[in-house]
């Protein structure tokens, strides 16, 4: 006890931080878990008895279809981000240091700017009488404007556009750490380019890939405003379902269960990420 008195500053700081996190992070999340187990009530949002009905309803064909469609769009978004981002991060890590600083800066800009405004900016390009249609018709390639907006493709384009930097940055950081000697060693040991890529580069960059996947896949299911602005009513994300249940339909137990779905997905990805890093740590202890 006397240590507490000796270090009033330390005690105060720790109390403040723990207090904040327990009150505004832990308690709210426990509340959501609790809410997901309760029953819907018109007056007070939630009521007893406790049951698993909300989780069962996640499997209701109506919602299951929405969830699978959302997962599909998020999956395609993640694959595109990876396909674009992987070579991008590689190329970026091979460029002169001076230029790299500027290019990295250009990648962080989106993180600092309003994602809503940038989603809206895409609308200017994709609309029926938007820039892309105007350009294509001007070139005589099409006679009628294409329906680009309010499609699945528009939502995926929007998600890739917003989330690509979040894939590139962790990849860039693993490529930065990738030592050239390892590639040369692989070459000297007689490995071809493909073998080096498969057996050296891919395993070493795997933690970056998983971090990127996590940073893209989860928001891609949650960013409801992208689906709202670009997708129309048929291309909903899990985020739209959660938002509707909480703010419009007022079915909290169901909204909470849908949100826990996202949390579980995050936990699985975090675990995979840790595992991949630990494996690397075991195989290559001295760095």
């Amino acid at each position: 006890m006397h240590r507490v008195l000796q270090q009033p500053f330390k005690t105060a700081v720790l109390l403040l931080v723990w207090g904040w996190l327990l009150l505004l992070v832990l308690t709210p999340n426990l509340l959501v878990v609790g809410a997901s187990l309760m029953t819907r009530d018109a007056g007070s949002f939630l009521a007893l008895p406790l049951n698993l009905d909300s989780y069962r309803r996640l499997l209701d064909p109506l919602y299951l279809e929405v969830f699978l469609h959302s997962l599909y769009m998020a999956g395609v978004t993640t694959v595109f981000c990876l396909l674009i981002g992987y070579p991008f991060a590689w190329a970026l890590s091979r460029i002169g240091k001076q230029r790299q600083t500027l290019l990295i800066f250009l990648l962080i800009v989106p993180f600092w700017t309003n994602s809503l405004v940038r989603t809206y900016a895409l609308k200017l390009l994709l609309a029926t009488n938007g820039l892309i249609n105007n350009a294509l018709m001007g070139l005589g390639l099409i006679d009628e404007p294409l329906q680009l907006l309010y499609t699945e493709g528009a939502v995926i384009i929007g998600l890739v556009y917003l989330l690509l930097p979040f894939m590139i940055l962790p990849l860039y950081s693993v490529f930065e750490d990738l030592r050239r000697e390892l590639l040369m060693a692989s070459h000297d040991l007689g490995a071809g380019k493909l073998a080096t890529f498969m057996h050296v580069i891919v395993p070493l960059t795997l933690p970056g890939v998983l971090a990127g996947v996590m940073l893209v896949l989860l928001p891609a299911m949650g960013l409801f405003f992208v689906a709202d602005i670009l997708g129309g009513s048929r291309n909903l994300l899990v985020g739209n379902v959660i938002k509707n249940q909480f703010l419009d339909a007022r079915d909290w137990p169901f909204g909470a269960a849908a949100s826990i779905l996202l949390t579980v997905a995050m936990a699985v990805l975090l675990f995979a990420h840790r595992l991949s890093r630990r494996r690397l740590g075991d195989e290559e202890p001295a760095t």
Binding site: N29, L31, L215, L218, G239, I242, A256
Partner: peptide
């Protein structure tokens, strides 16, 4: 906990806080 707050989808944080405030 700080790491999880940073990584978790914003919407999860949002509804948990809404539940608390109400």
């Amino acid at each position: 906990m700080l790491f999880v707050v940073m990584m978790s989808p914003e919407i999860v944080l949002a509804i948990s806080l809404l539940a608390l405030f109400l």
